[in-house]
Write a protein that binds this DNA or RNA. Structure first.
Lengths: 136, 136
DNA sequence: AAGCTTGTTGACGTTAACGTCATGTCGTGC
DNA sequence: GCACGACATGACGTTAACGTCAACAAGCTT
């Protein structure tokens, strides 16, 4: 069925770790922290597309400076029970809260990038001026 | 003179810590790490506008997920010797490198914000639909 | 003079997010 | 049947960025 088709692609810890540029230890740690729940074949972990997707979200979260605990909440946003009022309310709250954080971060980012651009321009001009005065 | 006018505003560690929403311990730690070098009045630290500015840069850097070591490099960009070729070259390199990082981060950020918006919309619609079916 | 406040310097504790062994198991090729 | 490689599970080590606490000093205030 569809599931078989969709989830045909399977990985071992090391395979996926390699592909994502992390270590198997990290993946095991994420599992232990409850961020992913890969299946098993005997004792061995078997990761699928879904695990891969979550791992990519985890890595993005880390790049954005979130802790694993925060990332966990974020992941829950995706798969929370969307049928109950309370759940949806909480979802809405968390989402808005997180968005506020991210938008502040975006402002910081824009400003910093702007300043770096300015520094870069100054440095470039200084080099150009120097090469005019001292054409080796 | 101008300096006296500009730097009239002075702070104790705790004053400035309060204002910036951090602790005095953190400020002392930043000093120990070489990120700031406040003056002294006897044994007591005396912080001025410049220290305040650097601290704000430090905090912004942290919000952007940089380590203190990286922030230190970043701060040096602002006050590095801009008269020597090697220095300026290095400055240019570091700046561009950092800008690349930040622009990647910005992409991550845009995508995440977009996803959160979508989740928020879904949650909002679910709530609205529910309130139509069950008008308490 | 005594006490309170606000500061100082160590020194040690803490948390997050893994890294790094040590040791054990399982399937496979030879 | 045995070596080998890939995996597993503890257990302990590590780093960054402070928190916390003890012990002390200086400057008021009563």
């Amino acid at each position: 069925m569809d599931q078989d088709i969709e989830q045909r692609q399977l990985y071992s810890v090391n395979q996926l770790a390699d592909e994502l540029g992390i270590t198997a230890r990290a993946i095991r740690f994420y599992e232990q922290s409850g961020l992913i729940t890969p299946r098993r074949a005997g004792a061995n972990r078997v990761l699928d597309r879904r695990d891969r997707g979550r791992l990519m979200l985890i890595l993005r979260g880390k790049r954005l400076g979130f802790t694993l605990a925060e990332i966990r909440e974020y992941l829950d946003l995706y798969e929370g029970d969307r049928s109950q009022f309370r759940q949806v309310q909480k979802l809405l709250d968390l989402t808005r809260q997180r968005m506020a954080e991210l938008e502040k971060q975006r402002a910081d980012l824009e400003q910093t990038i702007g300043e770096l651009r300015s520094i870069e321009r100054q440095a470039r001009e200084a080099l150009e001026a120097a090469s005019k005065n001292e054409p080796s």
